[in-house]
Each structure stands twice: as C-alpha cells, then as structure tokens.
Design a protein around this nucleic acid. Structure first.
Lengths: 205, 205
DNA sequence: GTTGCTTTCTGAACACTGTTCTGTTACGAT
DNA sequence: ATCGTAACAGAACAGTGTTCAGAAAGCAAC
C-alpha cells in the first residue's frame, strides 16, 4: 500500500514544521510574546489547523522544552562518565547546568519559571519530569561524593533538592538580570564561580 | 479655600480604593489572572477610569509590590538591630526573607519572577529597587560577619549577590512546588534549614 | 439663575489573545 | 462516478490591555 504511510509521514512533517516555527519564534521573542496566529502565519496555515496537531499552546511549549532538556540530561550523563573524581564531576555538572540555562534562556524560563496557573491535576507535567531528571542526576553525583567523603552524609534527597534550588536561583537570576541592563550586576563569571564554591563548601562534611 | 484639598483627598481615596481592590484580587487569583475589568467591576467603575489613576496594569502591580516589600525591609532592619551576634543575625535575616516570600507568594513572584518583557529603558524599575534594597541589607549583614570572622573576606558585592540568588532560588521553588502537588518535594522545613546551613557554611572562611 | 469651564467619568471601540465550531475542499477507496 | 473520510480554513466567541470622543457633574463668574 504505502499510501497511508506517506500520509502519516506528511502529517508528522507538518507537526515538526509547526514545532520548528514555534521554536524559532519562542527563542527570538519569548514564549509569552508568540501567539498562535504568529506561528500560523509563519507556516502559512490557518490558526485552527495547529489545533489538529497540538491540544493547545501549552502543549507546543512543553514539547519543545522536553526536546531541549533531553540535551541537558545527555550532557550531564556524558560529563559524569568522563570525569572520575566525584568532586570535580559534581562541580562540572553544576556549572554545566548554569551554562545550559544561559545558552537556552527562553527554554529555561519556560520550564522552570513560575507557572501562571499551575497544573492541579496531580499529573506529572513535562516540567516536573525535567526537574526530576535533573534532580536524579544531582542526587547520584552527590551520593558518589558522599562515598568519597567530600560531601557530608545527610538525606540525599533533601541535599539534592536544596542544592538544585540554589543552582536554579543563580541560573534564573543571571538570565533575568542580563536582560535588565539597569541592574548593577556583578560579573557573570565571578557569580558563577563564587556560587559553585559556596555550594560545594556548603555541602562538605 | 479647602475645596481643592477636599477634591485632592477624594482623588487620592479612589486611587487607594483601586489599589485595595487590586491587592485583594492579585493575592487571591494571582497577577496574571486578574484583568483590568475585574478590578473595575470590584470598585464599580468603568475600566477606563482606572487609567486616569494609573498608567497601565504594570504600574498597579509595581505600586502594590513596593508597598509590601517595604514591610520586608522593615522586618530585616528590626531583626538586624535586635540580634547582636552577626552570624545569628545573618541566619535570621536569610530565614526571614524566605518566610516573607512564603507568606506573600503572589507578591514575591510578581517582584522576582522572570519578567515576560523586561524594561529596556535603562530605568530602575520598582522591582530593581526592591532587589537592591534587599541586597544592601544582605551586604551589610555579610560585612558585619566578615568583621567578626565568620564569613571569609571576599568581594562583598559578589558574595551578597550570589547568596541572594541562592536564597531566591529556594524561596521561589518552595512557592512554586507547594502549589504543584504532583512534585515529590522534600519537607519544607528540612529544605529551609538545610539551605540556610549550606549558605552559611559556604560563606565561612 | 443661567452661562461657561474644568474635571471626572463612561461607552464604545481597537487590536490583540487562545480556542472552537461549522463548513469546504481534497483525495483515496469502492 | 460516487462516497466517505481526513485535512484544512473562515468566522466567530469570549476574553485581554488600552484609547478616545463624548457625556455628566461640580464649581466660578456674570
């Protein structure tokens, strides 16, 4: 037959086309400032058509975000394998997280920025999943350091979540303050290395 | 004359009336979910009337936020005076900041959440001002600790900004994750005390 | 007491937003 | 050639922030 497969391919192609257009717009203008009509215009389809491929705008955003964050997870895993010293691996992982946020500011804010109307369904959103994955990586790295004696033995989950929150604070604020030229921010690299130092010292036994 | 003063008072009263209504709505429904029409309905005026008292919706939000954040500054100053030990004063100040955020989640997110469209005018927004004031308090507390020898001598500005970013991360994430019941968050108090511990240890010489 | 001026307020509109409903078009199968 | 289905689009709905011309109200002077 082959015809139904061709149609399925075409359908998938348009779906990807929508995602590509949306990604480009989100990155250059920010999620909030991109309307469904802008996306529709870019791909030269009617706005209603998009709803045949995605439930709503949120789903488009979440799909894009998930794809990008898989890159982060990959990078972190590669890092963990390539660095033998647990302490250095932890430091490198933390730095990698911050740099990833700075390289994908819109994706980062869309994922971990505060949600205007949180999902109360009890379902795990892609955002939650992204957080949990990053958290799992972090917990693993922390436990390796515990075994090596460079991080104090404490509830790994509490330690991981707290560390992640601090890391997130640094990342988000760097992103936000970079685009707010009025704020007298200290040099970026100074903040990053000081932040990493503080966190690692704070975790020591 | 006296009549012009009475009119000025009446004008000021309506302005405050708008702020009161807006505050109530913002706190219960969140900034994003409150429309100008909702505010207008609540005070039983036409939406257009509000624009005679405020430039736009943003200005209403900023005015409210500024008023609330003056409370934080006051609390922090009171704290600083009432605690003699610099280290304890710092710890209490940091804890106070987090608790303030948790008590005023909407105000906090509105002030320090990422701005959808940042102000590129170069002007210091009320948000910047709130951040700078909190930062100034923190820098002062840190320098007292430096003198006491409990915090390492380093660039106070970098140290303060980095600490603040971590503190912000903890505060914001606690706010967000509390309303996202799907996320398996560690106990709030554990995170707070662990976070404060980490920060203080990280700051030591 | 009527006129005129100023301030305060509003109804209606504009240009958007996300989303849905109904109808049309295109195309493969019978 | 007909039919059924899947893909698409136009128009509309209900909402948003904001603006603008005009109405109402209060007060001064005549």
């Amino acid at each position: 037959m082959g015809v139904s497969e061709r149609k399925a391919r075409a359908k998938e192609a348009l779906r990807q086309h929508i995602l590509d257009a949306a990604t480009e717009l989100f990155v250059s203008e920010g999620y909030q400032n991109v309307s469904m009509r802008k996306i529709a215009d870019k791909i030269e389809y009617a706005p209603a058509t998009i709803y045949l491929y995605f439930k709503d705008k949120r789903e488009i955003g979440e799909t894009i975000v998930r794809e990008v964050f898989e890159q982060l997870t990959e990078q972190l895993q590669t890092l963990e394998k390539s660095i033998t010293d647990p302490d250095e691996a932890l430091r490198a992982g933390l730095r990698c997280y911050i740099l990833f946020g700075l390289e994908h500011p819109h994706h980062y804010l869309l994922t971990f920025g505060p949600d205007p109307e949180p999902d109360l369904s009890g379902e795990l959103t892609p955002t939650d999943r992204a957080g949990l994955e990053a958290l799992a990586q972090l917990r693993k790295a922390l436990m390796r350091c515990m075994d090596a004696g460079t991080v104090r033995r404490d509830d790994p989950e509490v330690l991981a979540q707290t560390t992640w929150m601090c890391l997130h604070g640094i990342t988000q604020m760097l992103i936000c303050l970079k685009t707010a030229p009025s704020f007298p921010m200290a040099p970026e690299e100074a903040i990053i290395s000081t932040g990493l130092d503080m966190l690692l010292r704070g975790l020591r036994p």
